[in-house]
Design a protein around this nucleic acid. Sequence first.
DNA 1: CTGCCGGGGTGACTTTGGTCACCGTGCGGC
DNA 2: GCCGCACGGTGACCAAAGTCACCCCGGCAG
Lengths: 210, 210
Amino acid sequence: MTKQQTIATKLNYLGKELVDKIWNVADIKTFAAGTELVREGQYVKVIPIVLSGLVKVFTQIEDKELLLYYIQPEQSCIMSFSSCLNQEKSKIFALTEETTEVLLLPAEQVTQWVTQHPAINKLFYQQYDLRYSELIDTIHHLLYHKLDKRLLDYLTEKIKVTGKNPLKITHKEIATELGTAREVVSRLVKKLERQGLLQQHHDSIALLPQ
Amino acid sequence: MTKQQTIATKLNYLGKELVDKIWNVADIKTFAAGTELVREGQYVKVIPIVLSGLVKVFTQIEDKELLLYYIQPEQSCIMSFSSCLNQEKSKIFALTEETTEVLLLPAEQVTQWVTQHPAINKLFYQQYDLRYSELIDTIHHLLYHKLDKRLLDYLTEKIKVTGKNPLKITHKEIATELGTAREVVSRLVKKLERQGLLQQHHDSIALLPQ
DNA sequence: CTGCCGGGGTGACTTTGGTCACCGTGCGGC
DNA sequence: GCCGCACGGTGACCAAAGTCACCCCGGCAG
């Protein structure tokens, strides 16, 4: 199967006619890990659909940031979508975590498709719903969990999403994504290690089963 | 102008044909203040559009709750929408704050309209976008502001939304909506009063200009 | 070999906010 | 008039987490 065919299969539910139109105007681009795709305040003019790789979405005010969610393959960044339709500025940052391949749909086209090909709405509604849920989840974490629980959940999620179990990451990076300080992470990682929930190596952390 | 005409005017942008269909199947209901409209975990089968009054949306786990946002006239509760389309359970609670008049659209109808009358998508996209933004805002508040600032912002917002300046409210109620304890609110309200930002009366709080 | 630097560990201290206990006040019901 | 009750005020205390200062270790550039 060619790469195009693989992608076409994934988008099949949109209908052949629309998939054809997509091929006519869409771009496929590959971004290196660590590329900033969207920054807060920016107007966006393309709607990306992630084909492979991983994108993280976060907020940042001054030095403090917070991971909001990941965009995984076959998902889209709805902030871009609302940016386009309502001419809104982005409220979030998006950064590739790994080498990421993205299908880029030009905004004006998509706003037309919304009326001509109602099937595409399904994709967007699902995405909005997904992100809405994830934001509610994030709020629950902030509100109901102490940092040790949040840290553990963060690692679990990150391992799930990247598929790497001894996870290469520094305490500083964890601290940033959780919106806290390095020392705090060091202390808590130690604590979780003593509790037998994870294991630290020179430059990585492994979550232990159970 | 009759009430129906007033409502029709507000929905005008959906197109005459769709507005007619809406009249055929929609219900208008009035709920007393303090009525629970949606609870977490529930499947929802109607999509409400608030015509007058005010609905508050919040999360709750055990005793701790947090106000997420208000649904004001002409707005909808998108949780209901996603509940319908994707057969999802509600993740939030909704409660009328004042006597509230609501236009109720049956879910199955609306799922059809999404394809037959693409104009309706505009409404839903706007609503999703609005709520997404408000959740991001809520996260920012939790993450970047201390309680005194959050309290002040909460009061400002509540006064704006209800239009009542000496606002009738107890410390207990404020505490609940901010997810904190009564004593903490008492302390902070006192502090803000000493700072000349607000004034307490027997059973209400007035925000002072500036 | 030396010196620097990034990563991690740690103790001491502070701030914020949650909890507890207890009190005063005003009001409605009886 | 008296009781109970909801509301608000307050002091004492505690826990979580942020901050500061400083240390150790390992790798690597010179």
